[in-house]
Design a protein around this nucleic acid. Structure first.
Lengths: 205, 205
DNA sequence: TAGATTGTTAATCGATTAACAATC
DNA sequence: TAGATTGTTAATCGATTAACAATC
């Protein structure tokens, strides 16, 4: 049963909110509370939860832990569990720090860089390896997702290396558009387009 | 004439590709070339260009410079021209470097931080000010967009300060959901949701 | 019972793409 | 003229929301 992409995104966000509520005395939450916290429509919340077979109590709302559990069952997958981060410059470090900070189902199992000063160290509790070991690690540990934060000049080369080694999903933080085969998913973080879209929206006000 | 949001995003991307083509001898490009470079459908390219009143040559395609000009007329706005970046940690520095590198209509006119070591310096050609001068600068220079890269603990406080000072758009790189009034646009960069969605998609393959 | 909530369908809105006419 | 392209409408697909029944 395939969930709509937007629903999956929202489920991910619901879960992070539920996580904060997990130790409440009354571990229930109403759809309109979830909605308010995410600036969305309560109907949408209920519809999303309906799609994964969730159910609430007419008096108390949805059971927080039950819902977290259910969301996990629907969207987590062994395949997407192991992540690597390639390119440990300022951006890579910021992301490593950010992600090592939180409880999540997914693990960053390794960092990669070419800088001998970084290689061999452990940063934010994650070991950093030489980029020459990249391919071997991906195959051996069956890593399927990589976060790409190398300098733009290296983006294409490293992306090819990732794909040849069997990576199936790339979060691309470089400014380069990657040309990947059909079966490799890429998600671009495009700050310039975001700024320009924001600018356009402001001009309409 | 209001353009669809997705069209605005693509126009932004078309322009960046056109920019690379601007010095070609034959400064024309076909819709299917633009489409291929962005992994989208050529019909979509032509439809987007139609929406902004662009027109091409049946033999040669679209005139590169003419199109860049036209896109600029439609999506650029004085209101969104000036940008500030608040929080110059690793992530803020990475973004400042990234954006100072490229030719764009929008300008980062100032950085803000509390660290006295950074305040007063110029980083990537952009001056860094004390966060206490934030409000005054926004009002005086009529800044309407801010990129928020402060530590999560400060996110809410600084966001309120930004909004009270008249900011109308925030690119939010913190992990905190901001509760903003209707007339202030927020765009979240949510890497955890991206990772989880990617994981879900991989599990379907 | 009245009121607040969940659960679900159908309608609406927005975005993409198929189909095809027009043009060089 | 044949072939490749642009330009545009209508159909389709996907996502959101309005409406309302059911339940506690």
């Amino acid at each position: 049963m395939k969930l709509p992409g937007k629903t999956v995104q929202r489920l991910s966000r619901y879960r992070r909110i539920l996580y904060k509520y997990r130790y409440l005395e009354e571990p229930y939450i109403f759809s309109h509370d979830l909605a308010r916290l995410l600036n969305i429509n309560p109907v949408q919340v209920r519809r999303d939860l309906m799609l994964i077979g969730g159910s609430g109590n007419h008096r108390k709302g949805y059971h927080v832990k039950e819902l977290m559990q259910l969301i996990g069952e629907k969207i987590d997958s062994e395949k997407g569990r192991k992540i690597i981060l390639v390119g440990i410059g300022k951006l890579g470090q910021a992301i490593a720090e950010y992600l090592s900070d939180r409880e999540m189902f997914q693990d960053i199992i390794a960092l990669f860089d070419i800088d001998p000063v970084k290689v061999g160290k452990t940063m934010y509790d994650i070991p950093c390896f030489d980029i020459r070991d990249l391919s071997q690690m991906i195959k051996k540990k069956k890593v399927s997702i990589a976060i790409l934060t190398v300098p733009s000049d290296y983006a294409v080369t490293i992306a090819e290396l990732l794909i040849d080694s069997g990576i199936e999903g790339i979060l691309n933080f470089t400014s380069v558009r990657l040309n990947t085969p059909e079966n490799v998913f890429v998600q671009d973080f495009d700050i310039i387009t975001s700024l320009e879209e924001m600018s356009y929206r402001l001009s309409l006000k």
